[in-house]
């Protein structure tokens, strides 16, 4: 495995919902400006894992976390970390497109407006954000239309634009194509290729082909443990662990 500058460093991360342990001592480095894919069967803890990175996990009332997640060497679980600031640096895209019930323009600006001390000067941020998700040409004439009028695939790209408008350093994507058809999925995957230059992306997916197509590194989760983490080529061509091989060859999952 080639050495790269780590953007995120995860050390002995454990997570629980109530008494149920979801993650068990996860440790690995997420390289900067690369796409890191997290694969594994349903319920293996991959979603919980990325929710621990931007501390969304703790929104659930009986959730608990132990261990460290370092962003550029700083522990995000440090007592002095401001959650709002952290989540602006680490953006997130969800499985189900969740545009706010407002116009397309307002959706893009939502992050800036939600957190701005002074009113946001409109439009400056709208075009670049929409361009970077290849949505600008499709919606430029109807920025004032409701976001719900878009197709699901467009809505998901709008949600990505909404996250990008805040210019985060890391982008967490929790099965961003989980509810999209193959064509919309292909568009989002193209997009990922363009975005990897500018952001550090952590992509959770249960679609192995997707991980193989777009990612540089891949981690295989099983039962809350990290079975294997390596360059994507290595994982898919000569995995070091028997369970990884069984999973990627479709013996289970």
């Amino acid at each position: 495995m080639t050495t790269l500058v780590p953007k995120l460093r995860v050390e002995d991360l454990c997570a629980w919902y109530g008494e149920r342990q979801i993650l068990d001592r996860i440790s690995f480095d997420v390289p900067a400006q690369r796409i890191t894919a997290i694969i594994g069967p349903s319920g293996c803890g991959k979603s919980t894992f990325i929710r621990c990175i931007n501390r969304m996990h703790e929104l659930v009332s009986d959730a608990r976390v132990q261990g460290q997640v370092q962003l550029d060497g700083e522990d995000v679980y440090d007592r002095h970390v401001a959650l709002e600031q952290l989540r602006r640096r680490i953006g997130m895209v969800f499985q189900k497109a969740n545009p706010f019930p407002m116009s397309i323009r307002d959706n893009v600006l939502a992050g800036l407006r939600l957190t701005a001390e002074s009113p946001v000067r409109d439009d400056e941020a709208v075009e670049p954000a929409l361009r970077s998700v290849a949505l600008w040409d499709e919606v430029r004439d109807r920025l004032n239309h409701r976001a719900e009028t878009l197709s699901v695939g467009q809505q998901q790209r709008l949600c990505i634009a909404r996250a990008l408008a805040l210019q985060p350093e890391v982008l967490l994507m929790d099965e961003p194509c989980g509810s999209l058809d193959p064509i919309a999925t292909a568009r989002v995957e193209d997009l990922l290729g363009d975005l990897r230059e500018r952001f550090t992306i952590v992509l959770v997916t249960h679609n192995m082909q997707q991980a193989a197509r777009v990612s540089d590194r891949t981690g295989f989760f099983l039962g809350g443990q990290l079975v294997e983490f390596d360059d994507t080529d290595v994982i898919f061509t000569q995995p070091g662990d028997r369970r990884t091989e069984d999973y990627i060859t479709g013996k289970f999952g």
């Binding site: 931007n54 969304m56 929104l59 959650l83 709002e84 600031q85 952290l86 989540r87 602006r88 953006g91 997130m92 969800f94 189900k96 969740n98 545009p99 706010f100 019930p101 939502a110 992050g111 939600l114 957190t115 949600c159 909404r162 996250a163 805040l166």
Partner: peptide, 17 residues
């Protein structure tokens, strides 16, 4: 839907926002 709330929190908004 909770997805909307999560979307807001993920953008760095406070509970009040």
């Amino acid at each position: 839907p909770d997805e909307l709330r999560e979307g807001g929190y993920a953008l760095g908004a406070t509970p009040w926002q």
